[in-house]
Nucleic acid binder design. Structure first.
Lengths: 201, 201
DNA sequence: TCTTAAAATGACCGGCCGGTCAGCGACCCG
DNA sequence: CGGGTCGCTGACCGGCCGGTCATTTTAAGA
């Protein structure tokens, strides 16, 4: 009975989180009201507070469950023993792949970035920062190996992470008709080899 | 007298806009309240409404006066007869240069992007979109010339615009000690030539 | 100094939203 | 059937903020 109760509560919590995501995707962050969320789930506002201390805790939980799997997949990649170049290629593939399956989650990522930036506050769980830092290390390793050019690894990492975001954003808005492998390859090719055609003619 | 009055009103309007920018930089978008803005200028809330119809009009005006000069400088560049490759190089230089002089304005850009994205609504004056579109044309021209590789120009453009944003963001946060010419060159080099070292050894 | 029109003010209003809690019904047990 | 537990409810509260407008202040002209 204990287990059953917990399972059911988990289900409830998940329904609430799903409602937040749905609302955010359909009508934007401004529409995410405790009242509206409850309405979406089909429960009363007070009930939501039986599951989450307050609105911030709810949003935090949504971000967590939406982005933690991605971060784990990327951290696994960072921890692997691939060489830096392959790591960046694989990064793009995993990043796009993750959001391609669940496009609504990408909104959550946008939301996190924006709130972090607009509020101007430092967030403890700033995932974006984490991503850039780990990417920085990869690039630094590549430079030490003599594979990459000697550039500021932090800035190159910021460019790379942002480029992935930009492409995913395009996929989301532009209809995303291209296979994700193509887009991942596009990122790798441009970022690693450059836009300019090789003078191989 | 007519002229004098207008000039003085312009000054008032400018003070109000400056207050918005200051508030936004110091305490984030959430602190930008009509009351706080008036307080910052040293006038009463009602007075602000003598100059701007409502809050949205004020924010719109702030965005306009902050970003229009940049857009003009970039549009001049796009309209010039430089070849595509030089245009992209010059783009990075102008972009970074503009915000380097007035770093607080960069916050306004962040604000516009975030609001545009989070609200999910299409904005009439979406400058970001305009930038990407013009950059797309440049890249397409470069591809037609045979200088650039045959990639999706829209996606490459999104990457490029975003990369510039990322670097400016880094300059803002990381202390921005590097000369802007170096950072502009970094963007051009990576985006145009790639991160991977040429096998010229 | 008085007149008067324009400029500035800030108390006030209404709506919104996060958060609370007294109460209600469903269900179980004795 | 009586009583007690518990999940749930939604009316309500308080604070915040955008926007208004009757009133006061300013200043120019006579």
């Amino acid at each position: 009975m204990r287990a059953t109760t917990t399972l059911w509560q988990d289900f409830k919590r998940q329904s609430i989180q799903e409602a937040v995501i749905q609302l955010m995707c359909r009508e934007g962050l401004g529409a995410v009201t405790m009242e509206r969320v409850a309405q979406e789930v089909g429960i009363a506002k007070g009930t939501v507070y039986l599951h989450y201390r307050d609105k911030q805790a709810l949003l935090e939980a949504v971000k967590d469950s939406a982005l933690t799997p991605l971060m784990e997949r990327l951290d696994d990649l960072f921890d692997s023993d691939l060489d830096p170049l392959r790591k960046l290629e694989a990064y793009a593939l995993r990043y796009l792949g993750y959001f391609d399956e669940r496009r609504d989650l990408f909104r959550i990522l946008i939301y996190e970035r924006e709130v972090t930036r607009v509020s101007g506050q430092r967030f403890r769980g700033d995932r974006y920062r984490h991503l850039v830092e780990r990417t920085t290390k990869v690039i630094r390793a590549g430079i030490d190996d003599g594979v990459f050019r000697d550039v500021d690894p932090g800035k190159a990492a910021a460019m790379f992470v942002e480029a992935n975001f930009a492409i995913m954003n395009q996929r989301l808005r532009g209809g995303g008709d291209a296979p994700l492998e193509d887009d991942a390859r596009l990122i790798s090719e441009i970022f690693l080899r450059g836009l300019v055609k090789r003078r191989s003619k």
